[in-house]
């Protein structure tokens, strides 16, 4: 059974509702306080990227499962999807300190460190889809 939450991001309020949805799901699934903070912050960063660079897009948060010998591992997956300009050089945006917005440059490498799995798919001129998973410990 998978629980899912969809949030449209086209204003700053989208960022707020996305992270609220994320926090609720993280609490429900039983994430500890620190991992809740990691997860919501990652959502906030991804939603902000959509708002800043693509103007609109969506954040999808869903539960995922992974069977292992030691039992079923549960986690939460974020999908951040937009039809913005796309990322020209993925290698560059994954470097620490890279920024085009004059922010702190924590950006995507920061998000990667907050999460357990991280993947970018981007086509210039068509859009970007970033997926990231945090597993329940």
């Amino acid at each position: 059974m998978s629980v899912q939450s969809n949030v449209e991001v086209h204003s700053e309020w989208g960022i707020v509702s996305a992270r609220q949805a994320g926090r609720n799901l993280a609490k429900e699934l039983g994430f500890g306080g620190v991992d809740q903070a990691r997860f919501t912050t990652a959502i906030s960063e991804l939603a902000r990227n959509i708002y800043l660079y693509a103007e609109q897009g969506e954040i999808i948060i869903e539960t995922v499962e992974n069977s292992r010998i030691t039992g079923v591992q549960r986690g939460l997956k974020i999908t951040a999807r937009d039809r913005g300009p796309g990322i020209k050089s993925i290698r560059e945006v994954m470097e620490d300190g890279y920024t085009t917005s004059g922010g702190l440059g924590a950006g995507l490498p920061g998000v990667k460190r907050l999460m357990d799995e991280f993947d970018i798919d981007s086509v210039t001129g068509e859009g970007t889809e970033i997926t990231a998973i945090k597993w329940l410990r």
């Binding site: 306080g33 620190v34 991992d35 809740q36 903070a37 990691r38 912050t41 960063e45 620490d96 702190l104 924590a106 490498p109 920061g110 998000v111 460190r113 907050l114």
Partner: peptide, 14 residues
């Protein structure tokens, strides 16, 4: 500053 907030900031390199 809460532990989760501090750790998140450090993870992001802030």
């Amino acid at each position: 500053i809460q532990p989760g907030v501090a750790i998140t900031l450090i993870d992001m390199g802030i």
